[in-house]
């Protein structure tokens, strides 16, 4: 799906960011173009989730320097809801439970916010029910989950399916899926991965944050990046993930030592 004329969707340059006064990202560079699937791998604490939260505009994370552009426009001044409306979607590693808020109503309000941005008509309750029932099939989700409170009492797998359902409804331009594979059994992983594949479009892009090769067996990435200490230290193709699975992250330590010796 990648072509030389593909438009750049996301461009991150020398991004430094902190949370609670501690700098986590130490100069991230990343370019994502239309039709591309990127995988970001790395140890716990390497900054993967922080990067996803910073892109989505989480208020607890502070950008110290650098830039994030979405389709050529700086988004750092945009509120999280504005970023979502222009098509940036964050699939949460731990989707939040919101007691008392109906999942169906939440999905409808969110979908209409995005539709408004796309200059599409807002959907009334009945129109939305038709749409959501159709999209439920993508993640093989039981309609009973629509009647519950947002993520309340959902199993790990159900929460992740609910995330992909939101992705299917919001039709984002770029989806950043933070450890969507964690806590999934083999069947659920297959369903979620198949949903992500079905939702990939030539004019959209996906960033998968993952620890494991197994998700990448289901979704073939065009690029694999390895993050360590708040930076992308290596980029390759899907073979890099295979190598990583075999040899672990030891080579990162080796590289770091070699660099230190060279100094």
């Amino acid at each position: 799906m990648i072509s030389s004329t593909s438009e750049t969707i996301l461009s991150i340059e020398d991004l430094h960011a902190s949370v609670e006064d501690q700098e986590i990202l130490h100069g991230v560079n990343l370019v994502v173009k239309e039709g591309e699937i990127h995988a970001i791998m790395g140890r716990n604490g390497s900054g993967k989730s922080t990067l996803s939260k910073v892109i989505a505009g989480h208020p607890s994370y502070k950008v110290l320097s650098g830039s994030i552009q979405f389709k050529g426009k700086d988004i750092l001044e945009l509120e999280p809801e504005e970023r979502a409306r222009i098509g940036i979607f964050l699939g949460f590693q731990y989707p939040v439970e919101i007691p008392g808020v109906s999942n169906l109503e939440f999905l409808r309000v969110a979908t209409n916010s995005r539709r408004k941005e796309l200059l599409k008509s807002e959907l009334d309750t009945f129109e939305f029910e038709d749409l959501v029932k159709e999209r439920l099939k993508i993640v093989e989700m039981d309609p009973a989950f629509l009647e519950r409170s947002v993520n309340e009492g959902f199993s790990g797998g159900e929460k992740k399916r609910n995330e992909i359902l939101q992705m299917a409804l919001l039709e984002p331009v770029i989806s950043i899926l933070d450890e969507t594979d964690s806590g999934l059994d083999i069947d659920a992983l297959r369903i979620v991965a198949s949903g992500i594949n079905r939702l990939s479009q030539p004019n959209s892009a996906t960033i998968l944050i993952t620890h494991y090769q197994r998700l990448l067996n289901e979704i073939t990435p065009d690029f694999v990046h390895i993050m360590a200490d708040g930076k992308i230290i290596k980029t390759g193709n899907k073979e890099l993930a295979v190598d990583l699975e075999k040899s672990g992250y030891d080579f990162i330590d080796k590289n770091t030592k070699e660099k230190e010796m060279a100094k």
């Binding site: 979502a84 964050l90 969110a110």
Partner: peptide, 16 residues
Amino acid sequence: FYLLSRGIDNKHANSL
């Protein structure tokens, strides 16, 4: 933040 990250404006998110 979860609600905001789905494009729901602050006022509506608080109401929800």
